[in-house]
Amino acid sequence: MAAGGDHGSPDSYRSPLASRYASPEMCFVFSDRYKFRTWRQLWLWLAEAEQTLGLPITDEQIQEMKSNLENIDFKMAAEEEKRLRHDVMAHVHTFGHCCPKAAGIIHLGATSCYVGDNTDLIILRNALDLLLPKLARVISRLADFAKERASLPTLGFTHFQPAQLTTVGKRCCLWIQDLCMDLQNLKRVRDDLRFRGVKGTTGTQASFLQLFEGDDHKVEQLDKMVTEKAGFKRAFIITGQTYTRKVDIEVLSVLASLGASVHKICTDIRLLANLKEMEEPFEKQQIGSSAMPYKRNPMRSERCCSLARHLMTLVMDPLQTASVQWFERTLDDSANRRICLAEAFLTADTILNTLQNISEGLVVYPKVIERRIRQELPFMATENIIMAMVKAGGSRQDCHEKIRVLSQQAASVVKQEGGDNDLIERIQVDAYFSPIHSQLDHLLDPSSFTGRASQQVQRFLEEEVYPLLKPYESVMKVKAELCL
């Protein structure tokens, strides 16, 4: 049975990233139509530049190519590739079939990587351009969430054990800070992308030097003109047959890092959902379990974690691919890159769409948070109580021993009897502590235990987050809708 299948058929496997999760716009960027249309555009740009620099290419040939950029006979191309065992030459023939007058000058002087690699770089750039505003929107939604809850005390956790208090907004800023680093890295790697350009079979530009009869300047002009037509500021000066596969490492490393950030955020949300302090959106008709109707599973956060793990592992592909590119190139890269580049971007696209949807509907339960604080705060307040007693004339050592005994009794009630923490009640009825009984409410005010959390939130948002989001103001209103 021949390899390949009808990918629109229910009898043929289709990647869930495309069929179930990723956005239509990201799927289109990695589609065959987008790819092969870009090949034709690159052939047109090459012909236009070659004509401008004096090669015998007519206006009629150029116009014929322009008129057929979208006229792609995919069936013919597939048949040609089956016959020739070469995808680029299959599309040269297919393009030439609908451009008979231009057929002889299509791909003039070029090698397969002229269309293959340059198209990949265009796709990487455009895919990054799709991700950047999506990530900015996630940051914006979380920034709104953090600002609104900047002063809401909550129990902090280290080692997932109760620690000092923080605020809900401050905790959210930990998430935002990681995503801001990801946004900066995505922008950097996007701006650092260079075009492969017009380089020939081993990167020496020998074929173009021959076409222009040894004119170095025209060869350099050709490279520059096509690079500018493709919208790049610069091209690699040095290439082998391909652009260095280190570029793929750079791009997928940034995406993998984004995956790590999203995994951490969504894990926190899942843990908070278990504590009943916070939940992701839950639709009115949504079913959490087929057997347990009360369940409210954090399905979206779980999906993000599941896909983020996949995204983090994909960076190993370009690392290994770059390491086995012998001399000017081997074909070890080809099949692998067809999979890992598309999957990385479709996965990143999915987790950003999902995280935006989550961040637009996060639900906080202040009463649950308050109750958990009441359970733990008495123990945390013991040092403040000791200091207040010393100020009232008591002995630190005597007070410490009193607190120690009462704390152990209260802990026994919590752990052995399943009761509430009654340390404060014990202190309130103990005559030894009568000098500070009137101060206990103040000493137990949760806001006095959150330090500068709310001020940190305000400063972080104003100095770091809002300036970073400013270039994306025009796209901030787009909502994230999930079908599944």
Rank of each mutant, 00 (worst) to 15 (best):
A3Q: 15
A3R: 13
S9N: 15
D11A: 08
P16A: 10
L17D: 03
Y21P: 00
Y21K: 01
A22P: 11
E25Y: 12
M26W: 01
M26K: 00
F28S: 08
F30P: 00
Y34P: 00
F36V: 15
T38G: 04
Q41E: 13
Q41K: 12
L42F: 02
L42Y: 02
W43F: 08
W43Y: 05
W43I: 01
L46N: 08
L46D: 01
A49V: 08
A49L: 01
Q51E: 06
T52A: 14
L53Y: 06
L53P: 02
L53H: 05
P56R: 12
P56M: 10
I57P: 04
T58V: 12
T58A: 12
T58D: 11
Q61F: 06
E64M: 09
I72N: 09
D73T: 12
A78W: 09
E81L: 01
R83W: 10
H86F: 00
H86W: 00
M89Y: 07
H91K: 01
H91F: 06
H91T: 02
F95A: 09
G96S: 10
K101V: 12
K101Y: 09
A102D: 04
A102T: 10
I105S: 14
I105A: 12
I106L: 07
L108V: 10
G109S: 04
N118T: 01
D120W: 07
D120G: 07
L121S: 09
R125K: 15
N126G: 13
L130H: 09
K134W: 09
A136R: 14
I139K: 03
D144Y: 15
A146D: 00
K147A: 13
R149A: 08
S151V: 10
L155F: 06
G156I: 04
G156F: 00
G156T: 02
F157G: 04
H159Q: 03
H159F: 02
F160Q: 00
Q161A: 05
Q161P: 00
G169E: 02
K170T: 00
C173V: 06
I176W: 02
Q177N: 15
Q177F: 10
D178H: 03
L179K: 01
M181K: 09
D182K: 00
Q184A: 14
Q184F: 10
N185C: 13
L186K: 04
K187I: 13
V189N: 12
R190I: 09
D192V: 09
R196Q: 14
K199M: 02
G200A: 13
T204I: 03
S207P: 08
F208M: 11
F208K: 05
F208I: 11
F208D: 04
L211A: 09
L211R: 03
H217G: 12
V219I: 09
V219G: 05
L222F: 07
K224F: 12
K224V: 11
E228T: 14
K229R: 07
G231I: 02
R234S: 15
A235E: 13
A235K: 08
F236K: 04
I238E: 04
I238L: 06
Q241A: 00
T242V: 10
Y243M: 09
D248H: 04
I249G: 06
I249C: 07
E250V: 08
E250G: 14
S261W: 02
H263D: 00
C266N: 08
T267V: 10
L271S: 03
L271Q: 07
L271H: 10
K276E: 06
E277L: 03
E277I: 03
M278K: 01
M278I: 14
K284Y: 14
S290W: 02
A291Y: 03
Y294E: 00
M299N: 09
S301Y: 04
E302G: 01
C304G: 14
C305I: 04
S306L: 01
S306D: 03
A308L: 02
A308W: 03
A308H: 03
A308I: 02
H310F: 07
H310T: 09
V315Q: 09
P318W: 06
T321F: 07
T321S: 10
A322R: 03
S323M: 11
S323Y: 04
V324L: 11
F327L: 10
E328A: 05
R329N: 02
T330H: 03
L331Y: 06
L331E: 01
D333G: 01
S334D: 05
A335V: 08
N336G: 14
N336S: 14
C340W: 04
C340L: 10
E343F: 00
F345P: 03
L346H: 13
L346G: 09
D349W: 05
T350D: 15
N353H: 05
T354N: 10
N357D: 10
N357E: 06
G361T: 13
V364F: 05
V364K: 01
K367E: 07
V368T: 10
V368E: 03
V368Q: 05
I369F: 03
E370N: 15
R372A: 06
Q375V: 04
P378G: 04
M380K: 06
E383A: 01
I385K: 04
I385E: 03
I386A: 06
A392F: 07
G393K: 07
R396A: 06
R396F: 05
C399I: 12
H400V: 06
I403G: 05
I403N: 07
L406N: 07
S407G: 11
Q409F: 07
Q409E: 10
Q409I: 06
Q409M: 11
A411C: 14
V413D: 07
K415I: 07
K415P: 04
K415C: 08
K415T: 08
L423Q: 05
L423T: 03
R426T: 06
Y432N: 08
S434D: 11
L440S: 06
D441C: 08
H442K: 07
L444Y: 05
L444H: 05
D445E: 13
P446A: 07
S448F: 12
S448D: 14
S448K: 15
G451P: 06
G451I: 05
R452F: 08
A453I: 04
S454I: 10
Q455P: 10
V457Q: 03
V457L: 06
V457K: 05
V457G: 03
Q458C: 13
Q458G: 13
L461K: 04
L461V: 14
E463V: 11
E464K: 04
V465L: 07
P467I: 11
K470M: 14
E481W: 08
